[in-house]
């Protein structure tokens, strides 16, 4: 139930069966509603396709960072050992790329790993600290034995006119409001 200091931010449809959830997700996907997500306590095969999820941008970020690391390593080793501080080692040429391959490789990996870590934090909204699911008291259920579709929208008329019939048509019998705390104090 809505408490003081909370506002409605969307609609939640609770499900007990992953197959029903997938069928419902397909309906929501086809309805064109943009801001929505599924919450399940375990990985549900086929949900990605049912939700019509696009490829994550993270691999692209990773590869760009990786090659940045590679180029940095070439510039670093070559610049230091061959240009700014020419030091002959073992009678080999000043710019011996073979010797630096381990460094190229390491920086390639290091940049890729760090960029991936940061972009995962950003794209998973881990900096948000809390979620409306906590405020609505739903987190316990969707990490326990129930599955949920969350349709986010601040427009109450849109929620009642469009979202609710959508979930009902998908066979959902347990539809609730999604609340968010308006004060800054997070409730867990």
């Amino acid at each position: 139930m809505i408490e003081s200091g909370q506002k409605k931010v969307g609609l939640v449809g609770m499900f007990d069966d992953p197959n029903t959830l997938i069928a419902a997700a397909k309906k929501v996907r086809d309805s064109g509603h943009r801001a929505w997500d599924c919450h399940t306590p375990y990985p549900v095969h086929g949900l990605e396709q049912a939700m019509g999820l696009k490829d994550s941008p993270i691999p692209t970020i990773t590869i760009i960072a990786a090659f940045t690391g590679f180029v940095s390593a070439v510039v670093l080793t070559g610049g230091l050992n061959a240009v700014h501080y020419p030091l002959r080692v073992g009678g080999k040429p000043l710019f011996s790329w073979q010797a630096f391959v381990p460094i190229y490789f390491e920086l390639f990996i290091l940049f890729a790993a760090l960029a991936t870590l940061v972009s995962v934090v950003v794209y998973c909204k881990l900096l948000r600290w809390h979620s409306p699911l906590h405020d609505s008291g739903l987190m316990k259920e969707v990490t326990g034995d129930r599955l949920a579709i969350v349709l986010e929208s601040a427009d109450e008329e849109y929620i009642e006119q469009t979202c609710r019939p959508l979930l009902e048509a998908a066979g959902c019998t347990d539809i609730r409001h999604l609340f968010e705390n308006t004060d800054d104090e997070p409730t867990i």
């Binding site: 073992g90 009678g91 080999k92 073979q98 010797a99 391959v101």
Partner: peptide, 12 residues
């Protein structure tokens, strides 16, 4: 392949 080449190249 690189490890094989690298060690032989380095040890010379």
């Amino acid at each position: 392949a690189f490890s094989q080449y690298f060690l032989i190249w380095y040890a010379n």
